[in-house]
Simulated assay, not measured.
Amino acid sequence: MQQLLTFHKRSSGRWDAQWNDQTGDQDLYRKVRQDSGTINLIIYNPTFKLAGSFILTQTQPSNKTLKLYELFGIKVERSPQRAVVGSDVTLSCTISKLSDTVSLQWKHRNSSQQDRRNTDQIRLNNTVYLIVRHVAIEDQELYTCEVQENGSSILTGKAHFSVYPDLYQESYTLYRSGTDRSELDLICRSVASTYNAAAWTWSSHHLPNQEKKIATASKSQPIDVNRTDFGSRLVPTVGHFNGRTFSVRIVPVLFDDAGVYTCSLGSRKFVTIKLITVKVTAEPSDAETEGDTVTPTCSVSDVTEPMRLVWINSDGRTVGEKTLNGRNGEEKSLRLIIQKADRGRGNWICAVFYQNRPQVLVPYYLEPSGK
């Protein structure tokens, strides 16, 4: 609580305003002004950090509250700042205060696309995150954060981000869960030239120094897929290589698919994708268990930079957290102990956070019976 202004009434009926502390937040003093001669305040171009309660209190002849205004703010951010076609983008929408009557959610501007498979959404405390996988050019202005109070929309924030089509010499990291609904699109294309040959190679995280060709093609010819390691899960997304576009898909993604994928067009390396995979296992693993606890474990394939494993419950609250730094011998997993009394809550999610943004969400669902 911070006193801002004290008002004194003149005999003429006008009010004089005196700031209580001019050494405080300079942004506050620049943006908050007295409506001349009155006890009204005007806030110019309010920013997120000015959200809060503004209270007008009478001090003479007796103490009482005359007015209370609650000013809410939302802040929309994106990560990374620069995205290329095929990479993932995490959008965050933070509200200054989340009351019981207020909800926060991401919406797609085209309602028919609301349940697209390429997005995941989760709320953690006062922030709702949206992970958009394999972004395309048309994704740039499609998402809005909506604030609802008692079911009615009261405020929206637009998330604009740029997606660059040129993939030449690009590299980025993708995170995928080892679940049935997980997909990996390996997108490679040239915007400037055509090429007579193309290849996708894979270096497993188990054997980082051994590259395997998993797909090759010659111009105007069908794409040849090596199914030794991926079987029928690896499929071309186009029938023939047209000299520019050479993309394949892995579905579903397995935990051991982690590694480095590289696309070459002609003799040029175009795009390099590092895939980090995440899985959840549980003990006991029986379909039915009557024990006192169940212990799901969230594991990550690689730790190249500091990241966090976070268990989140159905209320959007953190119930377990571990920071991984990639040190030799470090256990790349986080366990959660679920008591028998908590099983009815059902949903838990393991999230991998990098640079304070979730990169992948792996759900774990437990029925009240323990199934």
Rank of each mutant, 00 (worst) to 15 (best):
S220A: 13
V280L: 10
V89S: 04
I349N: 02
W202E: 02
T323P: 04
L71V: 14
R233G: 01
R78G: 14
Q113P: 00
W311V: 09
V225P: 02
D16N: 15
P358S: 06
T59I: 15
G13F: 07
K332C: 00
E283Y: 10
K107N: 13
T90K: 05
G157A: 01
S220I: 04
I154Y: 09
M307D: 02
N125R: 14
T101A: 14
K158G: 11
P46A: 13
R268S: 13
T289F: 14
R133W: 04
E321Q: 13
Y69E: 15
H240Q: 10
N347E: 15
E146L: 09
R233H: 01
S62I: 14
T6I: 13
Y261T: 00
G259D: 05
E170K: 15
V278Q: 09
C263R: 05
K213W: 08
A215S: 04
L324E: 04
K213P: 00
T194K: 09
F72A: 07
V102G: 00
L186G: 01
D315S: 10
I338Y: 06
D257W: 05
V278D: 07
V253W: 00
R244P: 01
R233S: 06
A83V: 01
H8W: 11
D257N: 10
K31P: 02
F246Q: 05
L4W: 08
Q148F: 06
F246K: 06
W348E: 04
S12D: 15
K212W: 10
R10S: 12
G370M: 07
T59D: 11
E331T: 14
G73P: 08
D16R: 15
K9R: 15
Q2R: 12
R345G: 02
N63Y: 15
I250S: 02
Y168I: 08
Y172R: 04
T90G: 03
D185M: 12
N110L: 11
D256A: 08
R317T: 13
R268L: 12
A83K: 01
F72Y: 14
E170L: 06
I276E: 03
E305L: 06
G370K: 05
I122G: 06
D185P: 04
D229Q: 05
Q221A: 13
E77C: 13
K97F: 06
Y172S: 01
K332S: 10
T144G: 03
Y261A: 08
T262R: 15
N226W: 11
I276Q: 00
W311R: 03
T289C: 10
R176K: 11
I338H: 02
K269V: 15
Q3D: 13
N110T: 09
H8C: 10
N242C: 09
T295P: 05
V319H: 03
Q58T: 09
I338P: 03
S193R: 12
E211T: 13
K31M: 02
N196Y: 12
H206E: 09
R30F: 08
N118F: 08
D139I: 05
T38S: 15
L91V: 11
T47W: 03
V310R: 05
P61N: 10
